[in-house]
Each structure stands twice: as C-alpha cells, then as structure tokens.
Simulated assay, not measured.
Amino acid sequence: MTDNNLSKKVNFLIFYSIISTTFFLLFVVYLNIQKNKNLDELTVKRINIVDETGTNLRMVISNEVRQHPGIINGEKLKPRERPSGMIFFNSAGDECGGLVYDGNKNNAGMVLSVDKFRDDQIMQLQYMENTKNNARKYGLQLWDYPKENTNRERNKRFEKLDSINDKLLKKNEYQKMRLDSLLMEDRLFIGKNFNKDVGLFINDKTGNPRIKIYIDNNDTPKIELLDVNGKTID
C-alpha cells in the first residue's frame, strides 16, 4: 500500500468520525430539547406513570383496550374488560383505586373507587344510567368485607363459577361464597336510587336493609326502621 493511499484512507476515517460524532451530538441535543419541551397536545393510547426507579407503577391512564387489569396482593389479575380511565397503584405495588367511565346507547357511567388495602373496592362515588329508559343511580356507596385477606380465595371461587354452565348450580355456588363470607356486603348508600328515591340507606353487616331515610318520587318524606327480615319496626 502506498503512502498516498494510506493517507487517503486515514483522512476518510477522520472525516467519517467527525461527521458521525457531529450527528450524534446533534441527536443528543435534539432529544434533550424534546425532553424539556412544553407540549400543547399529546395523543396516546396509554400512559404509565412510574416511581423514580422507573419500574414500579403509580398510575395508568389508558383507553379501554389497553387498560391495566389490576394488581391485588402482589398478583396481577387476568386480562379482563375494563373501561377507559385512570388506575392508581400504591407503594406496595397494588391497585388502590381508580376513575373509570364510559357511555353508549345502552348504558353510561362514571365511578371514582377507593380500594381496601390488598383487596377490592370499599367506597365509590358513582353514577350509573340505563340510557334506553333514562333510569339513573348516583351517589356515595360503601361496602364491607366480612373477613380479612379473602381476595385470593374469592378469585379462585369466581374462576370456578366461570367454568359452571348450569345456572342453578352456579347460583348455589355463589350463595355459598356469601355464606363463607367471601363477598363484600352493601353497607350504605347516599344518593338517588334507580326507583328515584333520594336519601340515606343503611344496611347491617350481612347486607340487610335496616334504616331508610328518604323522599320518594311523590315528594313524600319517609323514615323506615327494619328488622333483619325487612319488616318495619313500629
């Protein structure tokens, strides 16, 4: 190889190195500008908000197709249909509540849920509507779980229910779940029911209505005290 050819190759490599380095630096500067740029509009299908480590979820904002199925007691739930909205996650990595919404020609609704630690929802600010017949329910809803740490067993039993086709057998198995204290019980609702009663409705720990203070659709104020069988206490 002549000195002239060698010199040409060296010069080419130097030129290539300078050009490559320049483009790389320009690319880094561009990324830095984009990182600190204020955006007026952003169109995405899902956003994951994570902690400072970049690995643990804190919030997911998503459409209905890409929505997170949830994590309870460290276990990611199976894929399921969930509405668009925001799902919140605590420092333990579990879902701890969310805001979801939807609406179509049949139904509409929006709920803000608060979950029990390592379990499902216990409180909701909710709006639900059957848009075909204009029937609506909205207000504050509270639930209780009779036993602690029943989420895993409850999910196993629900999976078993999904495999049962016989309606009567499925109903009996569901009732058994209630007898085994695996299901949440309605405790309180403040708002407007589907039957258009507006007021305060309190149930006992097994879900039986016990106190009703409300105004019915005819503007008649009522106070009802009920026993465990639903009969009025005089």
Rank of each mutant, 00 (worst) to 15 (best):
T2W: 00
T2M: 06
S7H: 06
S7T: 13
K8D: 11
K8E: 04
F12E: 15
L13I: 14
F15Y: 10
Y16E: 15
S17A: 12
F24V: 01
V28S: 03
V29M: 10
L31S: 06
Q34C: 10
Q34G: 10
K35P: 03
N36H: 14
N36A: 07
K37V: 00
D40A: 11
K45Q: 11
K45I: 12
K45Y: 04
N48E: 12
N48P: 11
I49W: 08
L57C: 06
M59S: 08
V60M: 02
V60W: 00
E64L: 03
E64T: 08
E64Y: 04
V65A: 14
R66K: 11
Q67M: 07
G70F: 00
I71V: 14
E75A: 11
K76T: 06
L77M: 08
P79E: 02
R80P: 01
E81S: 14
E81T: 11
E81W: 05
R82V: 05
P83D: 08
F88G: 06
F89A: 05
S91Y: 08
A92K: 15
V100T: 15
D102H: 11
N106Q: 13
N107M: 13
N107F: 13
A108D: 06
G109R: 07
D115E: 13
F117V: 14
F117W: 03
L125Y: 12
L125F: 10
L125V: 15
Y127E: 06
N130V: 06
K132C: 02
N134C: 08
Y138H: 10
G139P: 06
Q141S: 14
L142C: 09
Y145D: 01
P146Y: 07
P146V: 08
T150P: 08
R152N: 04
E159A: 07
E159C: 04
E159M: 08
L161S: 05
N165V: 05
K167A: 15
K171D: 13
K171E: 13
N172C: 00
E173F: 08
Q175T: 06
R178S: 13
L179M: 14
L182G: 00
L182E: 06
E185R: 10
F189Y: 08
I190G: 05
I190K: 05
G191T: 12
G191A: 09
K192F: 02
V198L: 04
L200N: 03
P209L: 01
P209I: 00
R210H: 02
R210M: 05
I211V: 12
K212E: 14
I213K: 00
Y214T: 02
N218I: 03
D219E: 14
D219H: 00
T220N: 15
P221A: 01
E224C: 03
E224H: 06
L226R: 08
L226E: 09
V228P: 05
I233L: 10
D234K: 05
